[in-house]
Protein backbone atom coordinates (compact mmCIF):
# COMPACT_ATOMS: atom_id res chain seq x y z
CA UNK A 1 0.00 0.00 0.00
CA UNK A 2 1.41 3.38 -1.02
CA UNK A 3 1.61 6.41 1.26
CA UNK A 4 -1.47 8.64 0.94
CA UNK A 5 -1.26 11.85 -1.05
CA UNK A 6 -3.55 13.64 1.35
CA UNK A 7 -4.17 12.66 4.91
CA UNK A 8 -6.61 14.23 7.37
CA UNK A 9 -6.29 13.35 11.03
CA UNK A 10 -8.87 14.09 13.71
CA UNK A 11 -9.83 17.36 12.02
CA UNK A 12 -12.23 19.61 13.92
CA UNK A 13 -13.90 22.84 12.82
CA UNK A 14 -16.58 24.62 14.80
CA UNK A 15 -18.74 27.60 13.95
CA UNK A 16 -19.91 28.73 17.36
CA UNK A 17 -21.87 25.76 18.68
CA UNK A 18 -22.09 24.05 15.32
CA UNK A 19 -19.51 21.36 14.55
CA UNK A 20 -18.89 21.46 10.80
CA UNK A 21 -16.00 18.98 10.91
CA UNK A 22 -16.08 16.47 13.74
CA UNK A 23 -12.84 14.57 14.43
CA UNK A 24 -12.62 13.55 10.83
CA UNK A 25 -10.10 11.04 9.48
CA UNK A 26 -9.71 10.72 5.75
CA UNK A 27 -7.16 10.05 3.05
CA UNK A 28 -6.73 10.33 -0.69
CA UNK A 29 -4.23 7.98 -2.35
CA UNK A 30 -2.09 8.95 -5.32
CA UNK A 31 -4.02 8.81 -8.56
CA UNK A 32 -7.27 8.10 -6.78
CA UNK A 33 -10.64 9.77 -7.13
CA UNK A 34 -12.36 10.04 -3.78
CA UNK A 35 -15.96 11.18 -3.84
CA UNK A 36 -17.35 12.99 -0.83
CA UNK A 37 -21.09 12.74 -0.49
CA UNK A 38 -23.52 13.78 2.18
CA UNK A 39 -26.60 15.90 2.74
CA UNK A 40 -26.54 19.68 2.56
CA UNK A 41 -24.83 21.16 5.57
CA UNK A 42 -22.82 18.00 6.23
CA UNK A 43 -19.60 19.99 6.14
CA UNK A 44 -18.27 19.11 2.70
CA UNK A 45 -17.47 22.65 1.61
CA UNK A 46 -16.01 23.43 5.03
CA UNK A 47 -13.68 20.45 4.68
CA UNK A 48 -12.56 21.50 1.21
CA UNK A 49 -11.95 25.01 2.51
CA UNK A 50 -9.78 23.68 5.32
CA UNK A 51 -7.81 21.55 2.89
CA UNK A 52 -7.26 24.47 0.54
CA UNK A 53 -6.50 26.96 3.31
CA UNK A 54 -9.47 29.33 3.27
CA UNK A 55 -10.52 28.09 6.71
CA UNK A 56 -8.24 27.23 9.60
CA UNK A 57 -9.21 24.11 11.53
CA UNK A 58 -9.66 24.26 15.29
CA UNK A 59 -7.88 20.98 15.90
CA UNK A 60 -6.36 18.07 14.05
CA UNK A 61 -3.86 17.93 11.23
CA UNK A 62 -3.68 17.87 7.45
CA UNK A 63 -0.77 16.27 5.58
CA UNK A 64 -0.13 16.71 1.89
CA UNK A 65 2.38 14.25 0.41
CA UNK A 66 3.80 13.74 3.86
CA UNK A 67 4.18 17.43 4.74
CA UNK A 68 2.00 18.96 7.42
CA UNK A 69 0.06 21.87 5.94
CA UNK A 70 -2.55 22.45 8.66
CA UNK A 71 -1.61 26.07 9.16
CA UNK A 72 0.12 26.84 5.90
CA UNK A 73 -1.40 29.83 4.05
CA UNK A 74 -3.65 29.11 1.09
CA UNK A 75 -1.31 30.45 -1.56
CA UNK A 76 1.48 28.21 -0.31
CA UNK A 77 -0.75 25.17 -0.57
CA UNK A 78 -1.73 26.15 -4.08
CA UNK A 79 1.91 26.24 -5.08
CA UNK A 80 2.37 22.76 -3.54
CA UNK A 81 -0.27 21.47 -5.94
CA UNK A 82 -3.63 21.78 -4.21
CA UNK A 83 -6.16 23.24 -6.61
CA UNK A 84 -9.75 24.01 -5.66
CA UNK A 85 -12.77 24.78 -7.74
CA UNK A 86 -15.33 26.62 -5.67
CA UNK A 87 -18.93 25.54 -5.17
CA UNK A 88 -19.99 29.11 -5.80
CA UNK A 89 -18.04 30.03 -8.90
CA UNK A 90 -15.17 32.33 -8.23
CA UNK A 91 -13.36 33.89 -11.16
CA UNK A 92 -11.93 37.28 -12.16
CA UNK A 93 -15.01 38.80 -13.79
CA UNK A 94 -13.33 41.69 -15.58
CA UNK A 95 -10.59 39.63 -17.14
CA UNK A 96 -10.98 37.52 -20.27
CA UNK A 97 -11.17 33.73 -20.08
CA UNK A 98 -7.60 33.35 -21.25
CA UNK A 99 -6.39 36.01 -18.82
CA UNK A 100 -8.12 34.21 -15.98
CA UNK A 101 -6.32 30.99 -16.75
CA UNK A 102 -3.05 32.76 -17.60
CA UNK A 103 -2.98 34.11 -14.06
CA UNK A 104 -2.99 30.57 -12.75
CA UNK A 105 -0.09 29.76 -15.08
CA UNK A 106 1.68 32.91 -13.97
CA UNK A 107 1.35 31.95 -10.31
CA UNK A 108 3.08 28.64 -10.97
CA UNK A 109 5.93 30.26 -12.92
CA UNK A 110 7.25 32.11 -9.86
CA UNK A 111 6.96 35.69 -8.71
CA UNK A 112 5.09 38.26 -10.75
CA UNK A 113 7.43 41.21 -10.24
CA UNK A 114 7.68 41.72 -13.98
CA UNK A 115 6.65 45.20 -14.82
CA UNK A 116 7.15 45.85 -18.49
CA UNK A 117 6.38 43.02 -20.85
CA UNK A 118 2.77 42.64 -21.96
CA UNK A 119 1.39 39.59 -20.18
CA UNK A 120 -1.42 39.02 -22.65
CA UNK A 121 0.97 38.45 -25.53
CA UNK A 122 3.39 36.34 -23.52
CA UNK A 123 3.11 32.87 -25.00
CA UNK A 124 4.62 31.28 -21.91
CA UNK A 125 1.40 32.33 -20.19
CA UNK A 126 -1.18 32.22 -22.94
CA UNK A 127 0.06 28.96 -24.45
CA UNK A 128 -0.66 26.76 -21.42
CA UNK A 129 -3.76 28.85 -20.69
CA UNK A 130 -5.26 28.15 -24.11
CA UNK A 131 -4.40 24.48 -23.73
CA UNK A 132 -6.27 24.29 -20.45
CA UNK A 133 -9.26 26.07 -21.96
CA UNK A 134 -9.23 23.59 -24.83
CA UNK A 135 -9.16 20.63 -22.48
CA UNK A 136 -12.27 21.81 -20.67
CA UNK A 137 -13.89 22.70 -23.98
CA UNK A 138 -14.12 26.47 -23.77
CA UNK A 139 -13.95 28.41 -27.00
CA UNK A 140 -13.62 32.13 -27.76
CA UNK A 141 -11.03 32.67 -25.04
CA UNK A 142 -11.03 36.46 -25.27
CA UNK A 143 -14.56 36.83 -23.93
CA UNK A 144 -14.72 38.50 -20.51
CA UNK A 145 -15.50 36.06 -17.73
CA UNK A 146 -18.49 38.14 -16.68
CA UNK A 147 -20.14 37.52 -20.05
CA UNK A 148 -20.13 33.72 -20.18
CA UNK A 149 -22.86 31.36 -19.01
CA UNK A 150 -22.88 29.75 -15.61
CA UNK A 151 -21.90 26.37 -17.04
CA UNK A 152 -19.00 27.93 -18.89
CA UNK A 153 -17.83 29.64 -15.76
CA UNK A 154 -17.73 26.25 -14.05
CA UNK A 155 -15.58 25.03 -16.91
CA UNK A 156 -13.39 28.07 -16.50
CA UNK A 157 -12.86 27.22 -12.84
CA UNK A 158 -11.73 23.78 -13.84
CA UNK A 159 -9.40 25.20 -16.49
CA UNK A 160 -7.81 27.46 -13.88
CA UNK A 161 -7.32 24.51 -11.59
CA UNK A 162 -5.73 22.46 -14.39
CA UNK A 163 -3.42 25.33 -15.34
CA UNK A 164 -1.97 25.14 -11.86
CA UNK A 165 -0.64 21.67 -12.75
CA UNK A 166 -2.03 20.38 -9.50
CA UNK A 167 -1.29 17.13 -7.76
CA UNK A 168 -4.72 17.04 -6.19
CA UNK A 169 -7.92 18.56 -7.53
CA UNK A 170 -10.47 19.61 -4.94
CA UNK A 171 -13.72 19.88 -6.85
CA UNK A 172 -16.71 21.24 -4.96
CA UNK A 173 -19.86 20.32 -6.87
CA UNK A 174 -18.40 21.04 -10.31
CA UNK A 175 -21.74 20.28 -11.96
CA UNK A 176 -23.92 22.33 -9.63
CA UNK A 177 -26.38 24.47 -11.52
CA UNK A 178 -25.45 22.98 -14.88
CA UNK A 179 -28.04 21.75 -17.33
CA UNK A 180 -28.28 18.00 -17.99
CA UNK A 181 -26.31 18.15 -21.17
CA UNK A 182 -23.48 20.20 -19.68
CA UNK A 183 -23.47 17.88 -16.68
CA UNK A 184 -22.99 14.84 -18.85
CA UNK A 185 -20.20 16.58 -20.72
CA UNK A 186 -18.51 17.52 -17.44
CA UNK A 187 -18.76 13.92 -16.21
CA UNK A 188 -17.10 12.72 -19.38
CA UNK A 189 -14.38 15.32 -19.00
CA UNK A 190 -13.70 14.38 -15.39
CA UNK A 191 -13.57 10.75 -16.44
CA UNK A 192 -10.71 11.64 -18.76
CA UNK A 193 -8.95 13.84 -16.26
CA UNK A 194 -9.15 11.17 -13.62
CA UNK A 195 -6.42 9.26 -15.44
CA UNK A 196 -3.94 12.09 -14.89
CA UNK A 197 -5.00 13.65 -11.59
CA UNK A 198 -5.88 12.63 -8.09
CA UNK A 199 -9.22 14.16 -7.15
CA UNK A 200 -11.47 14.80 -4.24
CA UNK A 201 -14.91 15.26 -5.68
CA UNK A 202 -17.94 16.64 -3.90
CA UNK A 203 -21.04 15.87 -5.93
CA UNK A 204 -24.74 15.34 -5.49
CA UNK A 205 -25.34 13.60 -8.81
CA UNK A 206 -25.11 9.95 -7.74
CA UNK A 207 -24.76 8.65 -11.27
CA UNK A 208 -21.70 10.84 -11.72
CA UNK A 209 -20.32 9.82 -8.35
CA UNK A 210 -20.66 6.13 -8.93
CA UNK A 211 -19.25 6.46 -12.43
CA UNK A 212 -16.18 8.44 -11.41
CA UNK A 213 -15.20 7.49 -7.89
CA UNK A 214 -12.69 4.85 -6.86
CA UNK A 215 -13.84 5.24 -3.29
CA UNK A 216 -16.67 7.10 -1.65
CA UNK A 217 -16.76 8.73 1.79
CA UNK A 218 -20.12 9.58 3.29
CA UNK A 219 -20.12 12.67 5.48
CA UNK A 220 -22.97 13.36 7.88
CA UNK A 221 -22.83 16.18 10.42
CA UNK A 222 -19.07 16.53 10.01
CA UNK A 223 -18.37 12.83 10.58
CA UNK A 224 -17.39 10.18 8.03
CA UNK A 225 -20.00 7.50 8.65
CA UNK A 226 -18.71 5.19 5.91
CA UNK A 227 -15.92 4.87 3.38
CA UNK A 228 -15.65 2.25 0.70
CA UNK A 229 -15.90 1.28 -2.95
CA UNK A 230 -18.98 2.69 -4.69
CA UNK A 231 -20.74 -0.66 -4.74
CA UNK A 232 -20.06 -1.17 -1.04
CA UNK A 233 -21.43 2.25 -0.24
CA UNK A 234 -24.48 1.67 -2.33
CA UNK A 235 -25.17 -1.49 -0.38
CA UNK A 236 -24.38 -0.13 3.07
CA UNK A 237 -27.61 -0.09 5.09
CA UNK A 238 -26.35 2.64 7.40
CA UNK A 239 -25.64 4.89 4.46
CA UNK A 240 -28.97 4.11 2.88
CA UNK A 241 -30.68 5.05 6.11
CA UNK A 242 -28.67 8.17 6.77
CA UNK A 243 -28.41 9.55 3.33
CA UNK A 244 -29.43 7.72 0.20
CA UNK A 245 -32.71 6.63 1.68
CA UNK A 246 -33.60 10.22 2.36
CA UNK A 247 -33.73 11.15 -1.26
Amino acid sequence: MTAPLLEVKQLVKRFGGLVATDHLDLDVRPGETLALIGPNGAGKTSLIAQLQGDLTPDAGAIYFSGVEITRRPAHGRALMGLARSFQITSVFPELSLVQNVALAVQARLGHSFRFWRDASSDSRLTGPAREALEIVGLSYPSRPASDVSHGERRQLELAMALAMQPRLLLLDEPMAGMGREDGVRMTRLLNELKRDYAMMLVEHDMNAVFALADRVTVLVAGKAIATGRPDEIRADPQVRAAYLGQK
Partner: peptide, 19 residues
Protein backbone atom coordinates in the same frame (compact mmCIF):
# COMPACT_ATOMS: atom_id res chain seq x y z
CA UNK B 1 -0.43 44.55 -13.43
CA UNK B 2 -2.49 41.43 -14.03
CA UNK B 3 -1.95 40.42 -10.41
CA UNK B 4 -2.85 43.90 -9.20
CA UNK B 5 -6.05 44.00 -11.24
CA UNK B 6 -7.00 40.48 -10.27
CA UNK B 7 -6.48 41.31 -6.60
CA UNK B 8 -9.14 43.99 -6.77
CA UNK B 9 -11.62 41.70 -8.50
CA UNK B 10 -11.34 38.55 -6.42
CA UNK B 11 -8.73 38.31 -3.73
CA UNK B 12 -9.86 34.89 -2.57
CA UNK B 13 -9.46 33.45 -6.04
CA UNK B 14 -6.03 34.96 -6.41
CA UNK B 15 -4.88 33.35 -3.20
CA UNK B 16 -6.38 30.04 -4.27
CA UNK B 17 -4.26 29.97 -7.43
CA UNK B 18 -1.14 30.63 -5.40
CA UNK B 19 -0.62 34.39 -5.28
Amino acid sequence: GMVLRASSQNERRLTAIGI
